[in-house]
Amino acid sequence: AEITLKLSEVHKADYPTGLADQEFARLVEEKTEGRVKIDCHFSGTLYDKEAAAIEALQDGEIGFARVSASPVGTFVPEINALILPYLYKNGKHMWAVLNGEIGQTILKNIEASGQGLVGICYYDAGSRCFYCTKSFSTVAEMAGLKFRMQDNPMMLDMVAALGAQGVAGIGSNEVYNAIKTGVVDGAENNYPTYQNMGDYEAAPYYILDQHTRVPEILLASADAKAQVGEADWAIVMECAAATQQYEIDEWAKKEESSKKIVVEGGSTIVELTPEAFAEFQAAMAPLYEKYGANYTEIISQIKAIGEQF
């Protein structure tokens, strides 16, 4: 029997995750010899909020959704440990964690939580950094600056811990104007968004503090897994695994091209010295106490993995 499953993606089709979705769909159709087809819907045309896409997966409205890891924390709390600020030294460190035992156990726990969700694989979303109308490279220089943040308690606490003020309630479309007109001094995001929304023209200093690395997760609905059947599901999982490196490469390409555009557009990339980075990390102590208290073991394991990078 032939089945078609919908995949919901909030990014555009040519975004790294969008490309990975299409590659995934192509591989699945090829390897299952057409028994399973995946119909990708990009740009949030099906659900413009990831939280809603997750609900839809639970209710079996769609087969797959590519979402950020952070809303999945509602179902598998350990994910909250993976997305703590200033946790990873760099991208390699994160991938060693995600594709190692910690990350894979968490992925399995998504299904084990019995919430109707199945974790398939992680994708890269780079790191988020501050950008600002002023340059800064130490915690002290952040005092009194206002940053537009996503409506997320931990991120707001993070900015507060750094001595700056987080402002929620500004839509992503309004960030450029908010900075340009001085409502806020800056915001934070990854390279592609910084470039794509034109925010670099308003806030020319991109501070490479890499505060968070929140990976993307490809999720499936438990209904979809049941429909596909065990044999074909194994193929689906294989195909997804095969798209991970593809997405990481596409992400790197995207980041590089965005970086080139912003630099040519007059932006200054401010790198942090290891000492400064340690200072940012140290400022997170109250945050780790508040959000990481339940995961001290995982956190120390992650830090241990970081020794080799």
Partner: peptide, 24 residues
């Protein structure tokens, strides 16, 4: 609520308004 958020931001009041999007 929205006027309150403006005040918090404008006068740099140290309150973490994390409901500024969700509740409205």
């Amino acid at each position: 609520l929205v006027v309150f958020c403006v005040f918090v931001r404008y006068f740099n009041i140290r309150i973490n308004v994390n409901w500024a999007e969700e509740i409205p």
